[in-house]
Simulated scan of single mutants.
Amino acid sequence: MNCLEFRRRITAEPRSRDAALLAHRDACQEGCAPFWQRAQRFEDDMETALSAISVPDGLADRILLAQATQERRRQVGHRRAWMAMAASVLIAFGGVGLLWRYTDAHSLPALAVAHMPGEMDALAMTRPITDAQVEAGFVGRATRLRGPAPAGVTYVHDCTVGPYPAVHLVTRMNDEPVVALYMPAMKTGSPEEFHRDGWDGRQIALAGGTLIVMAQGASRGTMDAVARGWQQAIEGPVAPVVGQI
Rank of each mutant, 00 (worst) to 15 (best):
R101L: 15
L108C: 07
A12I: 07
L211V: 04
V89M: 12
D200A: 00
E235W: 11
A87P: 15
M1D: 04
L111I: 00
R9F: 04
E192V: 07
G147V: 05
A60I: 03
F6A: 14
S54K: 01
L123I: 01
E193T: 07
I53G: 06
M120L: 15
G221S: 05
R17T: 03
Q133P: 03
A180V: 04
S107K: 11
A87T: 15
G229D: 06
E135W: 01
R146Q: 11
L59E: 14
V170C: 04
P237Y: 06
T126F: 05
G198A: 10
E135P: 00
F93P: 00
L98G: 14
V161S: 02
W100T: 14
D57M: 07
P34S: 02
D175H: 02
M85C: 13
P177M: 08
P150I: 00
H195Y: 09
W100S: 13
A27T: 02
V213T: 12
Q216K: 13
L21N: 04
E13C: 01
L108Y: 05
E13W: 13
T160L: 08
A52T: 05
R7H: 14
A149V: 09
Q37Y: 10
S16R: 04
W199K: 02
A180Q: 09
Y155W: 15
A39E: 10
R25E: 10
A52P: 04
C32D: 03
P148Y: 05
A105C: 13
H115T: 02
G209D: 04
Q244I: 07
V153E: 05
R127A: 12
S16F: 10
Q203H: 12
Q216G: 09
A239H: 06
E193F: 05
A19F: 00
E13Y: 12
R101A: 13
R228A: 14
R220V: 06
E135H: 02
Y102M: 14
L90E: 14
A12T: 13
A49Q: 08
Q75Y: 08
S51Y: 04
G217S: 06
E135A: 10
G58M: 07
R41G: 05
A81P: 03
E235P: 12
M120F: 10
A39I: 01
V113K: 05
G198F: 08
F138K: 02
H24C: 05
V242D: 10
G236Y: 08
A233S: 14
T210Y: 07
P109K: 05
T48C: 00
A86P: 15
L181F: 04
A33Q: 11
M125G: 08
L21V: 01
R9Q: 13
C3W: 05
T171H: 06
Q232M: 12
G217Q: 01
A114M: 15
W36A: 02
T69N: 00
R101P: 11
V156R: 03
